[in-house]
Design a protein around this nucleic acid. Structure first.
Lengths: 200, 200
DNA sequence: GACAAGGGAGAACGTCCGTTCTCCCTTGTT
DNA sequence: AACAAGGGAGAACGGACGTTCTCCCTTGTC
């Protein structure tokens, strides 16, 4: 009983994963409202019945997509960054990671900014998910900044550079925005160091 | 005949203006796909017949909305900035203007980033309008930067700060992103000056 | 005053979509 | 072998939306 429940649970989990994988690719690639439940059914291989058993409505699925993407996106960034030595290298690595992301064919901007623009005015869940993502990213950057011995104010500047690079790269189709952001961040680090030694 | 044609033309123009005003408020405030033609008809006071006479499809109306908004948005920014003395003051004025915009209750991020996220994958017209807007904004910033005697590279940094501030302010609902961007820009200007005198 | 032209209001049409329902088949149990 | 349970495929339902059509009224003209 317990084992079979476990198996049922695992099967449900992998089916849930397949559904979320399909939803993520479609929602991110084409927009929330442009993708219907039937298309997610086709892409995931699940039946509509199962789909609605696991996610009672499209709104639930959208929110689950955003929440999972937030966790994965930040985990991927964190893993990439933590491979570098603590300090300024890690801050600059953020923009190396962005550059690789921008070069992916599927890149289409920030999933949270896009979702906020599409449904943020209507759906509190979407607006909250987007805000939580930005807050978490800011916190992450603040951790890197303090780790490097700089003032927390720098984290807010970096957040603007990161979000600006994402939007600009998406709209203009130019991955070079990551390099611009990296160079700008390097300048800000240089400035911080100069201010510390100068005003020390 | 010519006069009456002129009057007809003017009436059509003001009706077109009313329609575009309604479309802009609704499209920007709630998203492109969340607003139906019937709602634009109600908000503009025009009949559906007239609406389709002036804009043969919703796609046409969406593109007209984006094109007009681009012109007006940049004109408003340019007018604000040109009230300051040429040089770095004008660069910083960009962020003062952003701050006032962010404080408006209707502020909901960059209309072009939002539209791109919603329909950019499907509609070439939307994708092009968004890209043209970003290109025009970058050109405008480049003009301010060269006017202030700085290198063109700085314009790309400023573009990232502007777009990042817009996205962040919208999603997090915090107009303070404009101040963060302004402070960051001030740092970059300081750095440019130091580099010029230092490396001179 | 008859009448053509054009515009307004809104019904109508076709399509799409989120969600539910029906029917059938499989599978495991007694 | 009979049967209950559950799942899959897809039809069905209700509503929304883009677009067109119908009908009526106004207005300007002979």
């Amino acid at each position: 009983m317990i084992l079979s429940q476990g198996e049922v649970g695992m099967e449900a989990a992998t089916q849930e994963t397949r559904i979320l994988d399909a939803a993520e690719e479609l929602f991110y690639g084409r927009g929330l409202q442009a993708v219907g439940m039937a298309e997610i059914r086709d892409a995931s291989g699940a039946s509509l019945k199962r789909l609605y058993q696991l996610f009672p409505s499209k709104d639930h699925l959208v929110e689950a997509y955003l929440r999972r993407r937030d966790v994965r996106w930040r985990a991927s960034l964190a893993a990439y960054v933590e491979a570098r030595r603590p300090g300024e290298e890690r801050i600059l690595a953020v923009f190396d990671w962005l550059r690789e992301w921008f070069a992916e064919p599927a890149f289409r901007g920030c999933a949270f900014v896009n979702s906020f623009g599409e449904l943020g005015a209507t759906s509190d869940a979407v607006a909250r998910a987007a805000r939580d993502h930005v807050d978490a990213l800011r916190d992450h950057l603040a951790g890197l900044v303090t780790e490097a011995g700089h003032s927390a104010r720098l984290a807010r500047s970096l957040l603007l550079l990161v979000e600006g690079a994402i939007s600009t790269a998406a709209v203009s189709g130019d991955a070079g925005a990551a390099d611009d952001a990296r160079e700008t961040a390097r300048g800000l680090l240089e400035l911080e160091s100069a201010r510390i030694s100068g005003a020390g």
